[in-house]
């Protein structure tokens, strides 16, 4: 465990403050760790994934004795040391060749893990096509009904989205969109279709995962929205799902807590839907205003002396009431 560090000067204080929890979080810094043995395929895959993840990526290029599913203490140490909240661990063994473990952290502890085996890997360099500029936010595409139903694949989708696309942004330059990461499953096997309850550890029946990288080509279409064509960019990976560790429900609940939105944010429209406001087809913001029915009875017309209320009138009526009230009551009682 790291000792609690106290800042000695302004610069280190700023650095420590940057690590403190924030309401709106930055992108997850990912550490790419090599295990005791990584083959050529894994090295290439990790290098390319890191290229996609840059600049929020740290490479541990030396070998490390690490088994995420048995002992996560090293991961926790590295997470604190590097302010990283995600790990990609590559490890190739005889039993599990070309294994890639995606680890997600919460508050310096392991939240959940998923191990995939790389079956087939084609590098970006093998595609002689233009590449997307690094640092661009990719668009993601997931295809299969299992991404909505099967717990393993829901977790995988969440992990992959966190890896490539986790940062929340409020605006984007549309011409800057040029990178697509597509995740498609193989056809759903019968065993998954028929049985309602999925066997958690039955990884054999789970379909293959195809990850592909594309660049966008926008063509004129005659309307505002351009016609999209995709050009393969790489890397392309075919993955099989292996071991996994689901998140502890308690910790997961803590991790899913959202900050309360400030009032100005709500007004800006970040939070709830704005009432009585809409954007029309021209892209203009239009508002509706509700005006209550006018009460003509209260309308101030011409003032005339004869219609004026005398100051004594109201008082006289009051004294009459109070004067009457008591005797009448007394009569009733007697």
């Amino acid at each position: 465990m790291l000792r609690a560090v106290k800042a000695k000067n302004a610069r280190s204080k700023r650095a420590l403050e940057a690590r403190e929890p924030k309401e709106i979080e930055d992108a997850r810094t990912t550490v790419f760790v090599r295990g005791t043995h990584t083959g050529e395929v894994l090295n290439g895959a990790m290098k390319e994934l890191m290229a996609l993840k840059r600049p929020h990526a740290i490479s541990f290029s030396k070998k490390n004795t690490i088994r995420p599913f048995e002992d996560a203490s090293s991961l926790e140490f590295w997470a604190n040391k590097n302010d990283a909240s995600m790990f990609v661990v590559g490890q190739s063994t005889k039993k599990r060749p070309n294994g890639l473990t995606l680890v997600r952290m919460f508050d310096g502890k392991v939240l959940d893990m998923c191990e995939v085996g790389v079956d087939n890997f084609i590098s970006m360099n093998d595609f002689k096509t233009p590449k997307a500029a690094p640092g661009h936010k990719p668009m993601m595409h997931f295809a299969s009904e299992l991404f909505d139903t099967h717990p393993r694949l829901i977790q995988l989708k969440s992990l992959l989205m966190d890896l490539f696309n986790g940062e929340v942004i409020d605006q984007i330059h549309l011409t800057g969109l040029e990178h697509v990461i597509s995740v498609t499953l193989a056809p759903t096997p019968e065993s998954l279709n028929s049985t309602a309850a999925f066997a958690e550890d039955d990884t054999k029946s789970l379909p293959k995962v195809h990850i592909r990288g594309y660049t966008l080509k926008l063509l004129a279409s005659g309307v505002r929205t351009p016609r999209v064509e995709l050009v393969p960019m790489g890397p392309s990976l075919d993955l099989v799902l292996r071991r996994h560790q689901a998140a502890d429900p308690e910790v997961w609940k803590l991790a899913m807590r959202r900050p309360k939105l400030k009032k100005q944010d709500v007004e800006k429209g970040l939070g709830k839907k704005r009432k009585n406001m809409e954007v029309d087809e021209m892209g203009d913001l239009r508002g509706r205003v509700h005006v209550a029915k006018q009460d003509l009875g209260k309308l101030q017309t011409r003032k005339m002396k004869g219609l004026k209320k005398m100051p004594g009138e109201a008082d006289g009526a009051d004294s009459e009431d109070s004067g009457d009230g008591h005797p009448r009551k007394r009569q009733k009682a007697t």
Binding site: H141, F142, A143, D148, M161, V180, P207, H210
Partner: peptide
């Protein structure tokens, strides 16, 4: 999150026929 999820079941025939073309077409 610039993310789209296609919940339609994967068509077995076109998947078997030409994998890369099928993946690109679905993604497109």
């Amino acid at each position: 999150f610039l993310t789209v999820t296609d919940l339609n079941p994967i068509d077995n025939e076109s998947y078997e026929e030409n994998l890369e073309d099928f993946l690109q077409a679905t993604a497109r």
